[in-house]
Design a protein around this nucleic acid. Structure first.
Lengths: 245, 245
DNA sequence: ACCTGAACACCGTTCAAGT
DNA sequence: ACCTGAACACCGTTCAAGT
């Protein structure tokens, strides 16, 4: 079975009353609900209801809600477009892949939020990681920088998708930020006051593309971490005893 | 009243039965509960119970749970250490500030998660933003790059704190990632297979410091975004051939 | 092996009624 | 103006009992 491909879902109306469930239908149904009703509308009970059963039935296929989230995320990541080898300069392919990753997370409401609370490690995530590693290596990036760089790039893409989703989905948050920025005191916060337009300016994908360039450029041109990955258990210095206040 | 300073909380045991509540006590109590019981233990009902009242009473001081989260976050950010002007090179001060920001979010369980779902804009957040803008300007970073750079840096710090918190707090997630990585197929994912040690290696703060350097270096050395919010005295050369999406 | 209803121990939010 | 109990409409998870 192709985990990555979008899956045809048999309408539950036409199924015999007690058709057997499966992990697959549960995940597909959950993604449909997420798409239509958002994260706040997604619950095990809601998924179970859509499948004409009780929430308890889902526990045959899932350990818990967290596992459902993780399966949903990996399934959705099957829609990320992997650029064809050597179809364009490595850096363009890298950016195209990351942009597609961003869009998949951003375009389905709630998915980016799920991605921030679930470390992805299913087959589709692995495919993306593998390709990202390959692209950075193709660009001549040293091994450790490539490994850490992929982590940094995916973290950024996930975080920016979550932040943008939040702004899109919660008009309340956005309005409060705008109010706070527009009433900021010039004497107390002169720089914020001077920059408020630039700070608020979302400007579609220009800004996201800029940030991606900054990070990629930083990885390529930046320092090689000074410690080898083999020597991973040693600590440089004891953690300062931060006192709680 | 100093929003930023830690506040002495009068023991609820010694209060007269119907002592008046306030936004302040509600937020302080919520932060205590977060510290002791984590995000999953924090609820309006739980906060109300700690204050010997019903959840409905809190709605005099808060619009909803989201607002409580936002207030908690800004209060907690009061603990971020702002480096003294000119005490060391600007880049060191920038890194110290961001590290302190990271620690505040990371060290109180659940706080980083709250930060990822709340755009901070209270007085303490503004102070941090103002200082970050000042540091980048001190480093000679162009205005738009400074504004967008501060956004990128704070997004990164918040995201890495949330990711690390997740790994720390959910042994389950961590174990599943480790299992997935250690059983990865060498033929299908040769690079992940080869790099799995580097990918897993958390290495305390070495990695986080590396990423910070990458981003700061990328901001300083990277391109100026080709659209300015307002054409100021300084002329920025438009970059030809940049395609818009 | 799978499904189910009911129960357990919770949620955020609203509202009429109190003081 | 503030507080309260009760209600509403939900949660995830467990479990004994069914098929």
């Amino acid at each position: 079975m192709n985990e990555g491909a979008p899956r045809e879902i048999v309408s539950r109306r036409s199924r015999p009353a007690k058709a057997p469930l499966s992990r697959d239908v549960v995940v597909s149904t959950a993604l449909e609900i997420l798409e239509r009703e958002g994260l706040s509308g997604l619950s095990l009970r809601r998924v179970a209801a859509a499948l004409d059963t009780g929430a308890a039935s889902l526990y045959v296929y899932l350990a818990n809600l967290e596992e459902l989230h993780s399966l949903m995320l990996d399934r959705a990541l099957g829609a990320v477009r992997l650029p064809k080898a050597r179809s364009s300069p490595w850096r363009d392919r890298l950016k195209a892949l990351l942009l597609s990753y961003f869009r998949v997370l951003y375009e389905r409401q709630g998915l980016a939020q799920i991605a921030m609370s679930t470390i992805p490690f299913g087959p589709n995530s692995l495919r993306i990681w593998e390709m990202l590693l390959g692209l950075l290596k193709e660009g001549g990036v040293e091994d450790i920088k490539a490994a850490w760089g992929v982590d940094l790039l995916t973290l950024y893409v996930t975080a920016i998708a979550a932040e943008r989703s939040l702004r899109r989905e919660s008009g309340q948050v956005l309005r409060r930020v705008e109010t706070a920025l527009s009433t900021v005191s010039e004497e107390e916060f002169p720089l914020i006051f001077a920059f408020k337009k630039a700070l608020l300016g979302g400007e579609g994908e220009t800004r996201g593309a800029w940030a991606l360039d900054v990070i990629i450029g930083g990885i390529v041109g930046g320092p090689v971490p000074h410690r080898s990955p083999r020597d991973s258990s040693r600590k440089t210095k004891a953690r300062g005893g931060q006192h709680k206040k």
